[in-house]
C-alpha cells in the first residue's frame, strides 16, 4: 500500500533521512520506533507531501505521489500530529467534524456534530467537552481530540504521531485498543510513531526502527525480541549502554 524507496531529506547540513526503504502492506499496522530527533515525524510528513523529499520515491498503491493526484489521496486520509495541531479558533466538536462540515464529505451540521460526539466518546472524552475550545483542555485531552479528528471521516490510511504520549496508563490503554480496532475492524492501514514499548506491542503488526537516517531493522512484532540486532535490543530495553549514543 505505502512503499518508500531510497528516501532522502536534509535540512541544511542536518541529513535527517539518508535512504529510507519501507513497505507498509494494506490493512496492516506499522509502528515506527527510533530515538528522539531521528526523523520519524519528518518521514510521515514526507509521505503526506508536507515536506518535500530531496530524493527517492513514495508509492501509494503503486502510484508515485510526486505525480499522482494528492487531493484524492488526502481525501481518504487522517493524521494525528505530534502536537495535536487543533484549530484554536474552532470549538472541539468543530475541530473533530472539520472534514464533515465542508468539502466533498460535507453533511448537515447536526449530523456532523453527532458523529463528532461519538468519536469523542471513542477516545474517552465526555460530550461536555464538545463545546469547549482547545485552549481550555489539558494536553492529553487535546491529543485525544486530535485523534478523534483524525478518525472522524473513517479514513483508509491513518498516521498517528505519538498517540499516547502525555496520557495516563489507563487512557493509553484505551487509545492503543482504539487504534487496534480501527485497523482490524475498519481495515485501515496505519502508521504509528511511538516511544512507548507497551504501545508497540499492543498496536503493531510490523515494527520498523529508524536510526541514523535509515531503517535499522524491520519485521513482525513477534520477532522483535529475538532479532539479535544490537540497536533494536538497546532501544526496546531502554539501556543507556550500547551502539546508540545517548547524546545525539
Amino acid at each position: 500500500m505505502i512503499e518508500l524507496v531510497d528516501l532522502h531529506k536534509a535540512f541544511g547540513a542536518n541529513r535527517v533521512l539518508r535512504g529510507v526503504n519501507l513497505h507498509v502492506p494494506k490493512g496492516k499496522s506499522m509502528v515506527i520506533i527510533g530515538g528522539s530527533g531521528t526523523g520519524k515525524s519528518v518521514l510521515l510528513k514526507c509521505i503526506l507531501g508536507l515536506v518535500k523529499p530531496d530524493a527517492g520515491q513514495i508509492l501509494i498503491q503503486g502510484k508515485d505521489t510526486a505525480k499522482a493526484d494528492r487531493d484524492a489521496f488526502l481525501a481518504r486520509f487522517g493524521m494525528l500530529f505530534q502536537g495535536g495541531a487543533l484549530f484554536d479558533s474552532l470549538s472541539v466538536w468543530q475541530n473533530v467534524a472539520f472534514r464533515l462540515l465542508r468539502g466533498t464529505q460535507k453533511r448537515p451540521r447536526a449530523e456532523a456534530r453527532e458523529i463528532a460526539i461519538e468519536k469523542l466518546r471513542r477516545v474517552g472524552l465526555k460530550p461536555e467537552v464538545a463545546d469547549l475550545y482547545p485552549a481550555e483542555l489539558s494536553g492529553g485531552m487535546q491529543k485525544r481530540v486530535g485523534l478523534a479528528r483524525a478518525i472522524a471521516a473513517d479514513p483508509e490510511i491513518i498516521f498517528f504521531d505519538e498517540p499516547t504520549t502525555g496520557l495516563d496508563p489507563i487512557m493509553a490503554g484505551v487509545i492503543n485498543e482504539l487504534i487496534r480496532e480501527i485497523v482490524v475492524e475498519m481495515g485501515a492501514t496505519a502508521m504509528t510513531i511511538t516511544h512507548d514499548m507497551s504501545s508497540v506491542r499492543a498496536i503493531a503488526d510490523d515494527v520498523a526502527m529508524l536510526h541514523d537516517g535509515v531503517i535499522q531493522w524491520t519485521g513482525p512484532v513477534g520477532r522483535m525480541d529475538a532479532s539479535g540486532d544490537p540497536y533494536l535490543d538497546q532501544f526496546i530495553h531502554g539501556r543507556a549502554e550500547g551502539p546508540i549514543e545517548a547524546v545525539r
Binding site: G49, D71, F81, Q82, A85, L86
Partner: peptide
Amino acid sequence: MKVTEQIDALVTLST
C-alpha cells in the same frame, strides 16, 4: 497556525 502545525493539519484535512 503555521508554527503549531495547524496549516499542515489543514492540508491533511483536504483544505
